[in-house]
């Protein structure tokens, strides 16, 4: 494959399979039972192009192959088939050039840090092994710590950092050598709302707008990619099943209608009955206020004509409507429609 200057990341027919041994149903309880060998394609003949300076979101349920793709792109896993170019370098043949072009943040970001060292000393060590020039290294460490909002805690022990601070330090580590491409694998998983937002804002405003880096951002949080990414790829079972702007992906789900309601005193049997009605495609029910007996419903309808029938159902069942609104389909609707899976919110 010839390298294109337009693309920071380019894969052609990329495939990575795993062999696994699974106990057969008959012998689940036996310690030395026969195990069946299975081959699972975690990344399955994937073609993907990410432009220079793009913030590309890769969305997918757990096990979709997102982390495997990141690990292939950062040279950690050798591909079984196909090719992948990162910054124009082949991940199989030019590993050192690829490593010098990328910063990788794994989903378990605090791995590799030394708990008895402070944040600054940890980064000082990584600056050396990431070949940050000795002249100006100190300034660079302070600069990246300031960028991620850790400057005031630079000399605190790493073991005293909160989960969010550890993740920020991991992000700072990926920036140390100022690589043009960042591979961020679920960078906000397990973080509180404030920390997640701070990291997202930093990526969108500082990394993309100010420094023009290319970012591959994997997540299973739909809101994240909807808010910040130029393009989104939806990955499932090792394949990109849809790829477009967040708005265009939402349009894919616009075939039907979505109604969001808050109802009072609705039984689970009534929810089941609603699910079985003609024209009702999906019903998501969630308790909103147990004391008041309120339930939030999100109903996807096949067409707008089904709506009067649904409202009639509530009337006949004597279910009180507290709130009602018709909604535009969201990226989550598109995601569910495409993958048939639920995702974290």
């Amino acid at each position: 494959m010839t390298a294109s200057k337009e693309y920071a990341i380019e894969t052609r027919n990329l495939t990575k399979t795993y062999k696994s041994k699974i106990k057969t149903a008959k012998n689940q309880r036996s310690l030395f039972s026969h195990k069946e060998k299975r081959i699972v394609a975690a990344v399955n003949h994937l073609d993907l192009q990410i432009r220079q300076g793009e913030l590309f979101g890769l969305l997918g349920p757990n096990g979709a192959g997102k982390t495997t793709l990141v690990k292939v792109l950062c040279t950690l896993l050798p591909p079984d088939e196909g090719t992948a170019l990162v910054n124009g370098f082949d991940v199989s043949k030019q590993q050192m050039q690829v490593k010098q072009s990328i910063g990788t943040l794994f989903s378990v970001g605090e791995r590799g840090f030394f708990w008895r060292l402070n944040g600054y000393s940890n980064l000082e060590f990584y600056a050396a092994i990431y070949n940050v020039p000795r002249n100006g290294r100190k300034e660079r460490i302070i600069e990246v710590m300031e960028l991620v909002g850790l400057k005031e805690h630079a000399f605190d022990f790493f073991q005293k950092y909160s989960g969010g601070m550890k993740r920020k330090l991991a992000l700072a580590r990926t920036l140390l050598a100022d690589p043009p491409i960042l591979l961020l694998d679920e960078p906000t998983t397990g973080l509180d709302v404030t920390s997640s937002r701070a990291i997202r804002d930093f990526i969108k405003n500082d990394l993309i707008k100010k420094t023009g880096k290319t970012v591959l951002y994997t997540t299973h949080y739909i809101e994240e990619v909807a808010q910040m990414c130029n393009r989104v790829g939806i990955m499932n079972k090792g394949k990109i099943i849809a790829l477009d702007t967040p708005d265009a992906l939402k349009d894919m789900a616009k075939k039907g209608e979505v109604a969001e309601l808050v109802v009072k005193n609705m039984s689970s049997a009534q929810v089941q009955a609603l699910r079985g009605m003609a024209g009702v495609e999906e019903v998501a029910a969630q308790v909103q206020d147990a004391v008041l007996g309120q339930t939030r419903l999100r109903i996807r309808l096949t067409d707008v004509d089904a709506l009067p029938r649904v409202l009639d159902f509530f009337f006949k069942e004597k279910i009180k409507l507290v709130n009602f609104k018709q909604e535009e389909p969201t990226l989550e609707d598109a995601f569910i429609e495409l993958t048939g899976a639920g995702v974290g919110r």
């Binding site: 950062c74 040279t75 950690l76 050192m96 490593k99 010098q100 990328i102 990788t104 794994f106 791995r111 590799g112 990584y126 092994i129 990431y130 070949n131």
Partner: peptide
């Protein structure tokens, strides 16, 4: 295993590590 991936994605060789 705790640090192996971080070692391998860095541009520093295993022998130096």
């Amino acid at each position: 295993p705790w640090s192996l991936e971080e070692v391998l994605v860095s541009p520093t060789g295993l022998v130096t590590f």
